[in-house]
Write a protein that binds this DNA or RNA. Structure first.
Lengths: 133, 133
DNA sequence: CTTACTGTTTTATAAAATGCATACAGACTT
DNA sequence: AAGTCTGTATGCATTTTATAAAACAGTAAG
């Protein structure tokens, strides 16, 4: 289904936060695969699709995909496409929880340094991501 | 107390995952501040202390600290040291709401770029700030 | 075969990140 | 004044990141 692929593409976000682009791509694909949004055997977006969609260089996408292949998350087939590995590495619930914790801590620090209640920010996040996000 | 500082230093870990060192340092200090391990007004580890402890360049640590200062999380005082920023005074309800919106947007982007659900982060924030945070 | 799609590679360029060494400058203690 | 702590700054070398443009190579469908 191409619609699923489009959904994955739409959720890709790049932030100018110092993290290399290829790392951001790699981690977001890893999460998509680990959470099952990209299923085993399913075709990944082509490198060019990602490059065009996010306006980044083809080699940058390739860098991310190469990392994913080394990680065992995807299989790259020359001239045919890239596919999610039949047995993709599952995201360790521990790591996932740790990531949530880290993001929460960072958001709390960010809220406090700007003089607002972290709880208010949390409730706003929920409101924004209910339907419109 | 110096023991607290040592604890913060001991928790600093650098990983070879493609993320620049200064970004890892910056984010871990943000987490420490968000967690309350580093409290407002408290002195931060010296740039040289961090550089020596983690065997990285002094300018790399400086890069991280500069980011934190621009972020408003710390205050750098030449020749005296760096300190965790005091919480800013609350502002008008108008600006306050705008700030909440900004922090929420940032947190959502931060969560997505790290492959986690913003809603999960929001719920974690609420849980952490209920009693323990 | 031709076309159109895949991933692969090369060349060039530029910017950023890191390390290492060496200083400079302000503040405090003695 | 001297010493020692702080952050600040510079110069040089190296590696990594990112872009651009162009080409190369394998696969499949017309």
């Amino acid at each position: 289904m191409h619609t699923d692929l489009q959904k994955v593409l739409d959720r890709l976000i790049l932030e100018a936060n110092g993290v290399p682009i290829y790392v951001q791509l790699r981690d977001q694909f890893l999460s998509a695969i680990g959470e099952g949004r990209l299923k085993p055997g399913e075709q990944m977006p082509t490198m060019r699709q990602v490059a065009v969609a996010l306006k980044v260089d083809l080699n940058t996408v390739r860098h991310a995909y190469s990392d994913l292949e080394r990680h065992g998350a995807i299989v790259i087939l020359r001239a045919k496409g890239t596919y999610v590995a039949d047995v993709p590495p599952k995201t360790d619930p521990h790591d996932r929880d740790h990531q949530i914790e880290e993001r929460a801590l960072r958001a709390i620090a960010d809220a406090r340094t700007h003089g607002v209640d972290p709880g208010d920010v949390a409730r706003r996040i929920l409101k924004m991501t209910k339907k419109g996000g």
